[in-house]
Simulated assay, not measured.
Amino acid sequence: MTGPAQPAVRLRPVVEADLAMFRRFLVEPGLIGLDWAGFRDAGAPGRRFATDGYLGPDDGRLVVEVEAEQVAAGFVSYTAGSYGGLARHWEIGIALLPEWRGRGIGWRAQAMLADYLFAHTPAQRVQAGTHPENVAEQRALEKAGFRFEGVIRSCEFRAGRWRDGHLYSRLRDDPSPG
């Protein structure tokens, strides 16, 4: 027995109409789940979009779009980092609107983003962090071809205390999930 068909998704550049969704993640408590860090500047998305359309050389965002409905389900992000000052890598993240979670969109979007970054940059490594209690995201990262590397102790201040994180990575030579 097979489950419901997973909607086809694609990644695309941000357009001005997406800024309303970005603002929601900044001002609606709980919308972003465990990553809620308090209210943020709702004008920031417009300023960033005007600067570079969220396609900067060291960080950016792409919208996760459900193809059949041509609707934004959320976004993926990437930020450059380095180890020892020489080995550049990408740290990725994802935020999906609640109605699109649990439908197989997140793992596919993260796999697509890693493939995109490996195709268009010389980085050897793409990594992602998540919360120990976010089991769904841990499964999604593994499905997207990422491997668990370990616990990062007290790496994030959230909800009034320091909390651990889980680190995952995918290397250029690791197989793409498909």
Rank of each mutant, 00 (worst) to 15 (best):
P175A: 12
R139D: 11
G33H: 03
A114G: 01
R48I: 15
E142W: 06
L167Y: 02
A20L: 13
G38R: 06
G102I: 07
G30N: 07
I152F: 10
G60I: 09
T121G: 01
H131Q: 14
Y78F: 15
R139G: 14
S82A: 15
Q138D: 04
F118T: 04
V27Y: 07
A111G: 02
L19D: 12
A114P: 00
E67D: 12
L55K: 08
R61M: 14
A140G: 13
A5Q: 14
G38T: 04
V14H: 01
G74N: 04
R170C: 03
G160K: 04
S154W: 05
T2W: 09
W90K: 03
I94T: 05
I105R: 03
P45N: 10
Y116L: 15
V27C: 12
E67L: 13
K143Y: 07
W90C: 00
R147K: 12
R10T: 15
G81S: 12
L171G: 04
G178Q: 07
E28F: 04
G150S: 06
S77L: 10
R23N: 02
L19V: 11
S176N: 10
A159P: 00
A136W: 02
E67I: 15
P175Y: 10
L171T: 03
A144L: 01
C155Q: 12
F75C: 08
P132T: 08
L34Q: 13
E133K: 14
E133N: 06
E156R: 13
R139A: 15
D174T: 04
V135E: 14
G165F: 03
V14N: 01
G150Y: 07
D35M: 12
F49H: 09
R153M: 03
G53R: 08
W90T: 00
A68L: 07
D41R: 05
D174E: 02
A128H: 02
D59G: 12
R139V: 10
R163F: 00
R101W: 05
E99D: 12
F75Y: 15
S77G: 09
N134K: 02
A159T: 08
R12A: 11
E65Y: 07
P7H: 06
R103N: 07
R61D: 02
E149I: 03
L167Q: 08
P13D: 14
R172I: 01
G53S: 11
F148G: 00
R61P: 01
A159V: 07
L96V: 11
V71L: 12
G178T: 10
Q110A: 09
A119T: 09
M1D: 11
K143E: 11
G129I: 11
A50V: 11
L96G: 05
R170K: 10
H120A: 08
V126A: 04
E137F: 08
V63C: 06
A44M: 13
L55T: 13
A87T: 11
L11E: 01
D164H: 09
Y116R: 15
D58N: 13
P132A: 04
G43A: 15
V27D: 12
K143H: 14
M21T: 15
G56I: 03
H120N: 13
G104P: 05
L167S: 01
W162P: 02
E99T: 11
P13Q: 09
I152D: 04
D35Y: 12
T130P: 01
